[in-house]
């Protein structure tokens, strides 16, 4: 196990994709100290910014003690191992990760789990915008794995979602699941506007309040229960909407009946 402790409160953005179990694997502390990072426009060594220690424990592979919200790309593309961050994490945490586990005991900034392929990303606090969403101009999106956020999630999460599961214990921001085509999202509390806009497939479950369903969703049925993943289901009853008609889509939007009496007007179409 490698422990990283920031030597200071970072002011400039720090690019540290080298903080990755696959990169650390087989390297001594002396080698890890030499790894390249960027702080603002200056190239530095990892050892310039962090106190780096090794302990014999096998897991987790990397522990970061302290707030590193300016440190970006931690665990980018990681395939195995486990990172625990005791503090807040910077942008692009675990982007394109293909395996292993990241746990943040704090908040995560934007683009966490962007284009994730596999593995587990668990954020105990809040997540910023673009959780699991792709880079600008790309339609890749998250294709597998699981993200759990215990707090709230910012805007534009799970854009172009193509697979995997996202569980949000708190609230979600607007445009959740924009243009998603597969995969499952469960929002245990309340959900922002325009959820599922332009979705063509997949499943979004809102257990809390959803003020308004987009006009381009059409009601299909009322269901008592919906499966989230193997061994996990949400209990309703739920209104089931199909959409987005603007994309001639066939996505499913489940909205809690009990928490959303304002949607009862849709019942006349059933």
């Amino acid at each position: 196990m490698i422990t990283l402790t920031p030597l200071k409160q970072f002011r400039f953005p720090v690019m540290a994709e080298c903080i990755n179990p696959d990169v650390f694997q087989g390297k001594s502390v002396d080698e890890i100290v030499q790894l390249t990072v960027w702080e603002g426009n200056k190239q530095k060594k990892l050892g310039d910014l962090f106190k780096i220690e090794q302990t014999p424990a096998e897991t987790p592979s990397i522990v970061i003690n302290g707030n590193v919200e300016e440190v970006r790309r931690i665990g980018s593309g990681m395939k195995s191992g486990e990172i625990v961050i005791n503090g807040n994490a910077g942008m692009h945490l675990g982007e394109k990760m293909a395996g292993g586990k990241i746990i943040v005991n704090g908040d995560a900034e934007g683009w966490a789990g962007s284009d994730m392929k596999n593995g587990l990303l668990e954020i105990m606090g809040n997540a910023g915008p673009y959780l699991a969403s792709p880079y600008r101009g790309s339609s890749t999106g998250m294709r597998g794995g699981k993200i759990v956020v215990h707090g709230n999630v910012g805007t534009d999460a799970a854009v172009f979602l193509k697979g995997g599961t996202i569980k949000i214990i708190g609230d979600a921001g607007p445009f959740m699941g924009f243009r998603m085509c597969d995969g499952t999202i469960h929002i245990e509390k309340n959900c922002g506007t325009r959820v599922g806009a332009c979705m063509t497939g997949g499943k979004i479950v809102v257990s809390g309040v959803l003020e308004e369903v987009l006009p381009t969703f059409t009601i299909d049925s009322v269901k008592a229960k919906v499966k989230i993943e193997e061994g996990d289901s949400a209990t309703g009853p739920f209104y089931v909407f199909i959409g987005d008609l603007a994309e001639s889509g066939n996505g499913k939007l489940y909205v809690s009946k009990a928490n959303n009496p304002q949607l009862s007007t849709y019942e006349k179409y059933l």
Binding site: P134, Y135, R136, G137, S138, T140
Partner: peptide
């Protein structure tokens, strides 16, 4: 302009 994903 339309292809940042191509440049990155």
């Amino acid at each position: 302009l339309m292809r940042p994903e191509d440049h990155i």
